[in-house]
Amino acid sequence: MNDRRVNRVVPIPDGPVQQAQQAAQAIETAWRDGVRLQRLELLLPLIGATDLDDWPGGIRQQFKAAQPMVESVLRTVKQIKGLQGPLAANIWDQGDAVGAWTGKNLACVLFPTAGTLDKLTQLCNGPDAPELVLIVNPQWETRGNLVSDFGFGQRKAEAERFINSFQPTYCLKQLRVYGDSIRTLKAHPNRWQVHVVDRGGSSDCIATRDEQPSYQEIEALLRDRPESMMNKSIFDRIKIEFAFNQDSLKQQP
């Protein structure tokens, strides 16, 4: 496997279409580098939600937002030589909205959970395992202790070993840190990037890292940035946060 790291700054995508294009390119590059098991984290477009109410329809609402993006990515990826062929769409778990697209050479699982881990393991390790398996926005927690669904002892260790075999090849996440809007972006083969996004949508890459940056690392980066929100007075922060909240409430589904 070629684990080359590139320090090119990848722009924050301006919407779902560009994000799907970036993801497909990262997947193909990683595939050509020998990465058979890949993990994606897509930033979902808000549908019937705002930044403040955080998916009132739950995981099924998120599925409706994610499905078109995933299918767009797959339409591109399955044109790659060695990954071609039809894909069958199935629901692995109705309640948790776990969807799967499977074919001879390519498979993708959206929102995999601890409850579908055995099925995912069989897909990856069975006699008819596809050449490339993608997981998108997994619903398990891998930082700290794994959720109780993974059990403990040997079973937990095996589950952790398996899910860690999926290499992150495209990940776009957003968070707010003391009022600053942050995007972290990983697009194989490039390093992890930390971007600050202003209210107009323009972004500034303030750091790159070999590993996914922690919240504490991002805080430290912002602390060294004079214009960051954490370095403003409490009154200025309240004023700017109020404006952000008003803008979020104006968003249309």
Rank of each mutant, 00 (worst) to 15 (best):
I238S: 00
K64A: 14
C205P: 02
I206H: 01
I182V: 11
A157C: 00
A88M: 08
V73H: 03
P189F: 05
D224H: 11
G115S: 07
N90K: 10
K232Y: 03
W55Y: 15
E131C: 06
R155M: 04
D210W: 12
L222N: 02
M1F: 13
R5E: 02
V147E: 13
P168D: 03
G153E: 01
A49T: 09
V17I: 11
L42D: 03
A159N: 13
I12M: 06
G126R: 07
V10S: 05
I91C: 13
A243K: 15
K250P: 02
R32T: 00
A65R: 04
F63S: 12
P13H: 02
D236E: 10
I59A: 00
F63W: 06
Q25P: 00
E28K: 05
A26M: 00
P130Y: 11
A24P: 02
L132I: 04
L120K: 02
C124R: 11
D149K: 12
E160F: 13
A187Q: 12
P127L: 06
A23R: 04
V98Q: 03
D128H: 07
T121F: 12
D96P: 04
F166I: 05
P138Q: 14
D128A: 14
R5Y: 03
P68Y: 05
I218Y: 06
K64F: 14
P13C: 06
N7E: 10
W92H: 01
A207P: 11
K186L: 15
V177M: 14
G57W: 03
T184D: 00
D210H: 08
P86N: 13
G57D: 09
I206E: 05
P11F: 06
P11V: 08
A30H: 03
A97I: 06
L221C: 04
Q25M: 07
K78N: 13
T29C: 05
V177N: 07
R176A: 05
L37Y: 15
A220E: 08
T169H: 06
A159E: 12
R183V: 04
M69F: 07
H188S: 07
L185I: 09
V77L: 00
G144Y: 04
P86Y: 01
E211S: 12
A26Y: 05
R4H: 08
L40M: 10
E28V: 13
K239I: 04
A66H: 09
L117M: 11
F162Q: 05
L222A: 12
P68I: 06
D93K: 01
L46I: 03
F242A: 12
F63H: 10
G201Q: 05
V9W: 09
N105H: 12
V177C: 10
L74N: 00
L146T: 04
G15C: 01
N245A: 15
A220F: 10
